[in-house]
Amino acid sequence: MDRRKSAGSAVGGKRLSARTAVPYLFIAPSLVLLTIFFAIPVVIAFLMSFTDFDIYSLANLSFARFVGFRNYANLYSDPLFWKAMFNTFYFLVVGAPLTILVALTAAVLLNSKLVRFKSVLRVGYFAPVVATLVAVSVVWKYIYDPHFGLLNYVLSFIGVSPHDWLSNPFWAMPAIILFAVWKNFGYTMMIFLAGLQTIPEALYEAAEIDGAGPFQRFWKITVPMLAPTTLFVTVVTLIGYLQLFAEPYIMTGGGPVDSTLSIVLMMYRQGFRYWQMGYAASIAFVLAAVIFILTMIEMKIQGEARAA
């Protein structure tokens, strides 16, 4: 939608001008709610991250004292925080590309003219996306069961001995990643499918006449044409995956030996289990900063790729 065009036509009476307070009244509810439940809280959280706000302050707000950068300094020297950072990035660095790759493969195959019953297949792949995260996490916990779980049963056919996936510090995170790919690839696939539909058929036909094989067509046409879509899904996936919480909360409780403790899970525990709210606020701001920086880097890389 072109904003400038519609603003210009407002002069010609296309947009209602505000002789009254009406438009302000219309945005007032959202403005008020956003101020009380977002803008002010973010500012308070920022201030809070410089205090020792804890369970005593919860009883009496005046007990909270200003401690400067102590929370951030403590965070820096807290091995558990670095563990949580590592785990979250492990989840992100392996999980995000895997999700996008699976989604892209599924989208390209589904987009083929040869495939029948497309809409049924699409809904099947998409089902995990709409399913309640907590409920399917519960289901998968039993799929990973060491004695009666489906995964061990399936793997037994290719000679893999049974594992206690979620109780093993090495395997717990890969297990959560596999679950997350299953849960999320359908969403990314739908976006890719929409992107694929915008690529003109003529490009493929011309390439085929010039003798390009299916792989060449994929690399030289599909991939570059999908670049904007890829940027979008990458940013969305990164931001979503950095907020990993319910999966470890339900499936592992952050264990074993903190091998699946994520940043948000650590923040939740510090803030709402131990009531170390000052400390938790500093974790939240580190998370926000990481999300912001990653998004910026991603935009820059993609921007350069497009310019090149």
Partner: peptide, 16 residues
Amino acid sequence: TMVIPAQVGMLPVFLI
């Protein structure tokens, strides 16, 4: 506001 993750405001919103 979409740039800032919801978790940032959660602690103060709880207090409010």
